[in-house]
Amino acid sequence: MTTTTPTKRTVPALSRLPGIPGRVLPVIATFVLFVLLFGAGSVRYEGFTSGQVFANLFIDNAFLIVLAVGMTFVILTGGIDLSVGAVVALSTMVAAAALRAGLPAPVVILLVLAIGTGLGVLMGLVIHHFELQPFIVTLAGMFMARGLCFVIGVESISIKDPFFRALATGTIELPGGVVITWSVVIALAIVAAAVWVLHRTRFGRTIYAIGGSESSATLMGLPVGRVKVAAYAISGLCAAVAGLLFSVYMLSGYGLHAVGMELDAIASVVIGGTLLSGGVGYVLGSLLGVLVLGVIQTLISFQGTLSSWWTKIAIGTLLLLFIVMQRLFMRRTP
């Protein structure tokens, strides 16, 4: 139904600021607004402007960064992956259960990565070969992954493995006394790798091409099927990595971990200026998107005495403020 009538993408008609290509504008907008938000926090709360608060943004959101990177690949092809939150939970569960069963950490890590990637491949294959809608297939994938969590166990399993514990507690001190964790290093390495893949490899450019127009990409003789499946595989792999980081962060596996985290990941990507219709966006934008969500969380934690509902309302309001400002920012630039 939708595959045969490619309609023209409405690429936002952004004219350019001198020297800045129109399509990086949203990323710049996100960046500017992020700085404003951070600045607002600094003005309002004491101790907000420390390097450690900034570093904590990365530490507390390392898994979300990885998740958002994988999600960016999928969304750039014009798809979506709702399963990632559940795959994170499944990864923590598999890791915890396998470690408890006495498997060595490297094997566990490989196992988790294989499961995540495998699920991604499976969903990608179904999406591509049967032309089912990504939303539904990955929603089913989400049910499946969560369900498997509970098949493994309904209780939370704590992780006592020394390697995981070491990763959790190990820190790296940066100049200036700022401390980060290994998770941050892994997450940033993945971001860097993703930037390279998306911009400097044929595979990456094909991802963009598919998002621009899948039918055109096919007619141009590009390996659309393979690349699309690979995008979901990457998302699955990233979810598995995020799951490992999350197990390190929580030091437990639990089927109810990361509920709704897929929406956080999608929100980060979209806030970072990526269009859900595909073909337009940057990994760095997604990274900024995660940081924006992180700052919002930090602001709320600095506020301290909020009841859980005010927290929700505040998150919603800040999110709203952000997207509306981003929108206006982009409208005004002629």
């Binding site: 929406l263 999608i266 929100a267 509902w309 919603g316």
Partner: peptide
């Protein structure tokens, strides 16, 4: 984009209800 526009209310809405 609809998904993000309605995500605002999805998040804040539960807070409002509470």
């Amino acid at each position: 984009q609809p998904i993000i526009a309605t995500l605002v209310l999805m998040t804040a809405g539960r807070g409002i209800a509470m």
